[in-house]
Each structure stands twice: as structure tokens, then as C-alpha cells.
Design a protein around this nucleic acid. Sequence first.
DNA 1: TATGAATGAGTATTCATTCAT
DNA 2: TATGAATGAATACTCATTCAT
Lengths: 207, 207, 207, 207
Amino acid sequence: MDDRKVARQRRLAESKRQHILDAAREAFAEDGLEKASLRAIATKAGYTPAALYFHFPSKEAIYAELLRSSLLSLGESVAAEVTGAETAEARFRAAGMGFFRYYAKNPSELDLGFYLFRGGMKPAGLDRETDKELNAALEAALRPLAKAARDMGAGAEEAELSMVNIFAHATGLLLLLHTGRIRMFGASAEALMQQYVDQQVEVLRGG
Amino acid sequence: MDDRKVARQRRLAESKRQHILDAAREAFAEDGLEKASLRAIATKAGYTPAALYFHFPSKEAIYAELLRSSLLSLGESVAAEVTGAETAEARFRAAGMGFFRYYAKNPSELDLGFYLFRGGMKPAGLDRETDKELNAALEAALRPLAKAARDMGAGAEEAELSMVNIFAHATGLLLLLHTGRIRMFGASAEALMQQYVDQQVEVLRGG
Amino acid sequence: MDDRKVARQRRLAESKRQHILDAAREAFAEDGLEKASLRAIATKAGYTPAALYFHFPSKEAIYAELLRSSLLSLGESVAAEVTGAETAEARFRAAGMGFFRYYAKNPSELDLGFYLFRGGMKPAGLDRETDKELNAALEAALRPLAKAARDMGAGAEEAELSMVNIFAHATGLLLLLHTGRIRMFGASAEALMQQYVDQQVEVLRGG
Amino acid sequence: MDDRKVARQRRLAESKRQHILDAAREAFAEDGLEKASLRAIATKAGYTPAALYFHFPSKEAIYAELLRSSLLSLGESVAAEVTGAETAEARFRAAGMGFFRYYAKNPSELDLGFYLFRGGMKPAGLDRETDKELNAALEAALRPLAKAARDMGAGAEEAELSMVNIFAHATGLLLLLHTGRIRMFGASAEALMQQYVDQQVEVLRGG
DNA sequence: TATGAATGAGTATTCATTCAT
DNA sequence: TATGAATGAATACTCATTCAT
């Protein structure tokens, strides 16, 4: 009985947290990560700023949680695409394009992710532990790439480099896609990514 | 005599401007572009905040000037590397690696440049004119790539895409290099860039 | 029980608002409306500047509220004086002298009101709606004059002009009274106002 | 020879002063007395802010000089109108309407003048001496009214009061005229002033 | 006389956070 | 859990004035 109560309360609390996170995602997408204020998030969620402190210890914590869930969701998305593929090569392609497409479809999360890479060595004021965790989540999302490369016969190092290459190219293209700052002469970013994946497959095969 | 006086004053003023810009570069590098305050810049430069307004009309103007000079310097650097090369292929390599190396050597300017690509479509509040100018400077710096590609026999569109590809890959690798996240893979960013340029040359040749 | 709590809180909040308004009135009276700073108001009220923003959305809003309540109070004061009077003539006198006396007794509110008339056509940055509301409140306070004039047999236009005349004369005398410049003439402002009202009554009768 | 040089220089200096005062008048008219900045005045005059300090010791001094010259000019204007009139009554009318018309035609100077009456007892930070001088200038401008009243047979006190009355009524009407804040139902402010002067003449005659 | 450069004090407003209730 | 109230530090920017040149 008590247990049920507790469980219900926990579910309720969790749903409120999610509600706040949704509001935060919205606010961050609208005003940018540094300009979005706690007050804006609270208002969007239908709360007072002070109320958020019952659910999160700080604004940074909200951001961190958002980023974590984004990276997990990215990981799941990539994993799901890979699962369907039968050959190693198909898995490599699926992982590479899955990574790219996830961010192409969720541009606001790309912004979120870039925050990790900000200010030289300073990831925004997250504590080391959180930072490590987030890093691990990102690596986990990319891992299927290296795995598939190895399955294609690549050595450990070669597989890692393949992963890095795919990550780098995808990131660069997404940056361009997302900001539209360089005219791509009619080329779709996705087509360019596809092309690069093909090249990389060729390299792995040839190597 | 008067002329000399005036000239000396102008030089003095210019050196003070540069001094402030240096302080700003430092402040931006330390605290990020949105969090670095005018006060911080002024303090670093040994001035009162109000004093900066004699040299620059606003904080954004400081940032814009910094970025403009960075992009021009990038352009010059790339152009210089290209000049020495004799064949079209050598020019393509020189331009691609020149772009990469410029930012590899000047990481704080990379940060500066990324600001242009931040916040979805919101580039910080620069007026349209400045924004256009900065875009043009960036494109000018990349132009030698497309030029060299055409000299290698590529069509207009193919040349543009080559440029975009190089830009994307370099950007992605620089992001990793700059944030130290590439070390975890044990790879040399420059070697990877070199490799990609080779690939791209191959593609252009083959096409 | 909850209701009582809420009611008590509301009363408390209202009393704090009034406290701040009093401080503002004082600050405005001391330093003039444009020079009185939010900081000064806050300090006088025993608050931090930021705290005021919980009670009012801006400095202008404080001023507007002060002026609105002053004009309403003026209106009530005039209305009260008129109510007691039995004949139309007595009501005219009561309204005219009531208007004059209100400001003679509350000189700081005169200052407040003059702000409405300052700076050519630029009333300080109040939004149109507020501006209209304040105008309406002023006119409402003067309305009994026109009403009484009509009751004395004046036409619509004549009644309006009577109102304008009384307003003008009172205003001019109050300016002199308030700034102490009337003492140099050794005259009693109130006596002069009385005299003018008498004259005006005569005119209305004669017409 | 030296004398001529000195004289020429003095004239030059004086013309520069006047030029600055013109600029200040313009700036004050545009932005209000408290918001117009020294910088704005300087720019309008084609100077650097610092340059103005060779011609005036402070911003307040500029304001004071502007006001003094305005009051002198008012005095001259009134005196000129009076001069032409032959009878005492005509002189009274001329003085009263002259006062009114001067400000009706030069509304920005009305603003200037009101500054004298600002902030309770605080005339804006002018030193006592300047304040007295300005007061004297105002009184001198009004003096012809009292003089004419006496010439019409009024006693000393009655004449003073007549002057005060005219001043008050004119001021009140000008305030309304200048700000347009009360719809005057087709009545021109000048007609109302004329009417009041007529009344006052009647009183003086009758008394 | 005039300027460019600089200052110190000031402006209204915003922010993340805390705390009594 | 949630709120209203409050804070202290911060923000970019403006101002009248000073001073070496």
C-alpha cells in the first residue's frame, strides 16, 4: 500500500521532470543555450523559477540531463538502424548514416551537443563526473561504427580511425546544413554524407 | 611636422585598438563569446569599460572586427600556401591543408569562427552588412580550393562540392582536435586531414 | 483558513506596493522625475533595486501608477466638494476651488502632474494606453466644472471654455505658489483664485 | 593695432558662443532639457564635447545663458509692443498679449522657462546669483504690465496683482496650448487670453 | 582653441539562486 | 511541492567632466 503510494509519487515526480525538460528543450531551441533563462524555462513549464529547484539542483543540471538524454537517444537511434542490417558493411553504412540523420532531423540537439565542445577545454561548468558520463554516452553512440569496421576486417586502430573520420565528416556537414552559411550548390548534405560513407567503405574494403 | 604628429597619433591609436583587440581575443577565448563581458575585456586591456567606447562603438563591433581580421588572415594564409604550388593538384592540396593548419595553429580563432555558426540561425546580433562581409571573407578564404579543383578539370558544381567537402572534414577534425577529444582515439588530426585531401584529389582525378 | 492566509498575503503585498510608491513619491519630489533613479527609490524604500521589479515592471510603471492614483484622488476630492453644494453656482465654485485647493495642499502631486505636460509632446515614454487613461482621469476630475456651468444655463461650448479657463488660471497660480515666486508679489494665491472664480461666475450669469 | 586684433578676436569668440547656444537651443528643443546631452549639443555645433568647455564652464551654464537670453528677448519683445501704444489701457493690453504671444510663438523657450519652476525649490542647480539674475529678468519683462496698471489709476498693490493674474492666466493657457492636452473645443488659446485681458481691464477700470 | 583619450559614477534592467512560508 | 519575495552580482552602455597634447 505504502509501496504503491511511493511508486505513484515517483512516477508523478518523473513526469514532472520530463515536463520541465521538454520546456527547457524548447527554451534552449528558441533562445540559444546561453541566453535561455531559468525563468523562461519555468514559465514555459508553467512553474515559478524557484519551483524548478525541487526537481533539479541548478540550471546546468537541467542542461546536462537534456544532453544526456539526447546522447542516449542518439545511441538508441543508431543502434536501431544497425540492428536491421545483416552484413558488416550494411551495419557500417547504417551506423554512419544513422548518426548523421539523427542530428539532421533534430537540429536543436546538435546545438546541445556542440555545447560539449565549447570554450577550449571548458565544457560549460559541468562537473567532471557528468562530463565523463556524457563523453561515454557519445562514444557509445559511435561505437557501432568501429564495431562494424572491425567486422569488415579492419584492425583495431583502423576501425577507430574510420569512426573518427565518419564523426568528423558528419559533424562538419551538419554544421553547414544547420546554419546554411555556405551555399552547397544544390547538393544535399545527406547526399554528401552518403558519398563519404561510400568512400570510407571502399577504403575499408581496399585496406 | 604637423603631418608627423598626426601620423604618430594615428599609429598610437591603432596600436591601442590592437591592444584592445588582443585583450578581447583573450577574454573571448577564456570565457566564451557570450559570457565574456565588456568589463572583462576592458580590465584585461588595462582600461575602464567606458574607455573602450572611444575605440569601438559596441561589444559586438569588437567581436566583428576580431572575426573579420581572423578571416582575412586565414584567407591570406591559404593564399600564401597556394601561391608557391605549381600544379593544380598541388594548389588543391595546399589550399586544403592550409585551411586546416591555420586553425590547428590558432585554436582561439577557431572558437571565434564557430560563433558564426552558433545558435541555429542567430549569429549574435551582427548587422546584416557585417554578417555578409564576414561570410564573404570566409568564402574568399575557401575559394582557392574550388579554383584549383576547376584547374584540375572539374566542372563548376563538382568543384564547389569539393570545397564544401574539404571544409566539412577539416571543420569536423578541428573540432575534435581542439577539444582534445581526438586524443582518445590516438590519431593525429593532421594525418587524417592529409588522408582526406588525398582521397579528394583521387576523386577529382578519377572524375 | 487558506483564504485568510491568501487575504493576509495580498494585504501585505499591497502595503509593500504602497510603501514603494511612497518612497517613489518622495524621490520624485526631491530629485525631479527624470533624475530620480530606481536605485534612489529602492534605497528609500529599504530595498534592493532588483526587488522593485517584483512589484512593478519598470520605473515608468511606478511613475504611471503614482500619477494615476494622484489624478483619481484629485477627482474624488473635487467630487466630494461638489456633492455638498446645492445650487449649480455653488457647485461651480466648489469644483473650481476644490481643484485649486487639492494641489495647493499636495504640492508634490502638482510636480507629478506637470510631468504630463513636459517636454513638448513627449510624455516620458508612457505607452499610449496609459497616456490615454491618465488624460481621461484628468478630464474626469475637471468634468464637474463643465457640468455645473451647464446647470447654470451655459451652452455646451461656453461650459467647456469655462472649464478650460478655470484650469488655466488655477494652474498658473499654483505654479507661482508652488515655486514661492508669488511671495515676491505679496499676494495670496488662494484669494486670487477665489477672485477669478467669482469673475467667471459673473460671466456665466451674465451670458 | 593690438586693440583691433583683440576686438576681432572677441567678436569671433562671441560668435562662436552664439553658435553653440543655437545648437544647444536646438538640442534642448529636440530631446528635452534633461535628456539633451552635452555631446549632442557639441555635435550639433560641430565641436567635440571638450571644446565647449572653452566657451562655457558647464552644461548648466549653457542652459542658464540660454534662459537669460530668452528672458531678455521676452522683455524686449514686450517692451517693443508697449512702446507703440498711446493710452495706458492700450499699453496694458499690449504688455499682456505681448507676453502671451512671445511664448505662443516660441514654444521651446516656454520649456526653457518652466525649468526655472522645477522641482519644488530647486532651480536645477543654478547658483544663487544666476538664479536671482534670471528672476530679475522675468520680473523686468512683466514690469510694463504693473506700470500700465498704475498709469490706469490702480494702486501699487492692485497693479502688482493684475500683473500676477495676467502672468498666471497666460502661463496656464500656454501650458494647454503647448501640450494640446485639453481639447479646447474650437477656442483658440489666444482668443481666451484676449478675453481675460479684457476682463482684467474692466476690473482695473471699475476699481 | 580644440581634440582624442580617459575616467568614475551612473543608468535601468536581468540573472540564477535562496529562503520563509 | 510550490510560491512570492528578495538578493547580490552582473550586463552593456551613457554621462559630464578632465587633461595631456
